[in-house]
């Protein structure tokens, strides 16, 4: 699993690449949080285009980043969510937090 972090006009975009599980979530979380806490963006975008697999550890990761962005009065956006990963997102109810 690799995370590419980019900054673009008030936005932090984290492109996730590979599998998201309990093993990989820690590194992803640390990479994203260190950038977000440093730059305090208005919007954090998580890009799932290159994610092959995600279990409920990914839901914990999203919920944690959602809370962090709320603390910073910012927003979280999930982009390029495939049907496969969308299934666990729908089950978790995170779409109810915000309409993506």
């Amino acid at each position: 699993m690799a995370v590419k972090i980019e900054k673009r006009s008030g936005c932090v975009i984290a492109t996730l690449d590979g599998d998201i599980d309990h093993h990989t979530a820690k590194n992803i979380r640390e990479s994203i949080d260190s950038e977000v806490e440093k730059t305090k963006p208005k919007i954090l975008k998580l890009d799932f285009n290159k994610v092959n697999f995600m279990d409920s550890s990914g839901i914990g990761l999203i919920m944690g980043r959602y809370k962090l962005m709320k603390l910073l009065n910012g927003d979280l956006e999930l982009i390029n969510v495939s049907q496969r990963i969308g299934k666990i997102m729908r089950l978790s109810g995170i779409y109810k937090l915000k309409k993506y």
Binding site: D55, S56, I59, L61
Partner: peptide, 14 residues
């Protein structure tokens, strides 16, 4: 803890 969603069994059931 904070970063666990508590969905493991719900996912297995579903």
């Amino acid at each position: 803890g904070e970063e666990r969603a508590g969905l493991g069994f719900a996912v297995m059931q579903s």
